[in-house]
Amino acid sequence: MRVLGVDPGLTRCGVGVVEGVAGRPLTMVGVGVVRTPADAELGHRLVAIEQGIEHWLDEHRPEYVAVERVFSQHNVRTVMGTAQASAVALLCASRRGIPVALHTPSEVKAAVTGSGRADKAQVGAMVTRLLRLAAPPRPADAADALALAICHIWRAPAQNRLQQAVARHQGTATRTSLAPPASRTPGTPGAPSAVPHASKGRTA
């Protein structure tokens, strides 16, 4: 499984590609950052992010794209920029028919470090260890992108089993609702009682 992780941001959008399967050593295929100047117009910055992500999709051909789920913060301006960059990543992947998964920061931290409250230094250290790198990727946005990819590789099997179970349950419920009602034989609870026909007697 090859996954492109995207840590969305307007100024620095982290991107990292990881390959492997759950339960086996993972390999980093590539890591980097798509940058845009803070003084550029918003539209131009979004186009630059799109072009950068498209380049990574062309070069590495991932099977999945994992994007950090945007959550509420006190800095509304930061949240808006993150959401806009996230939407660009979703658009680029969906346009190519590549499945996209969203993971919250706490999910990623818990998957990589074992704690949903780990700081960036801990995430970077574990990414370095898990991918057998010589040094933590810099900046932290790049390490976070790799952590997203790792998280998805490890969580995907469980998510697939859950989705399959839900699909089976929905299919069973649908078949049950479409099935005709079972016929009941006389004498069983709830069955209509048989009413004997009165025979016509002859008069003497």
Results as ranks from 00 to 15, higher is better:
P196H: 05
V29H: 03
A121Y: 10
R77C: 02
V15M: 01
L148C: 03
A121F: 09
Q164K: 14
R161C: 09
R45P: 00
P180N: 13
K120L: 15
M1I: 05
R117G: 12
A40W: 15
L146S: 00
R175I: 01
R95Q: 12
L46E: 08
A118R: 06
G201S: 08
H44Y: 13
V108W: 01
G124Y: 12
V123F: 10
R77H: 07
V65K: 04
Q170A: 14
V76M: 03
A48D: 08
R95D: 01
I49M: 01
I150C: 06
A182G: 13
A40K: 07
E68R: 03
V100G: 02
Y64D: 12
P189N: 14
A147H: 02
V6E: 03
A173V: 08
A191C: 09
R24H: 10
G52Y: 00
C13Y: 02
R184W: 11
L131R: 04
E68Y: 04
L162I: 13
H74M: 05
V70C: 00
L178M: 14
V17N: 07
A173L: 13
H74T: 09
Q159R: 15
L162T: 15
G190H: 13
V108Q: 06
D144Q: 00
G171Q: 11
A101L: 08
V6L: 03
T11Y: 03
A143C: 00
Y64P: 00
D119A: 12
G32I: 07
H74C: 00
A182T: 11
A165P: 09
P105H: 07
P180S: 09
A118M: 13
N160P: 01
A194Y: 13
P139F: 00
E68W: 06
G190Y: 12
A173F: 03
E68I: 09
R168F: 09
R35L: 08
A121G: 10
D141I: 00
H152G: 01
V6A: 02
T188V: 09
A121L: 14
V18T: 01
V67I: 14
R35C: 05
V33W: 01
P192A: 14
A191M: 11
S193P: 08
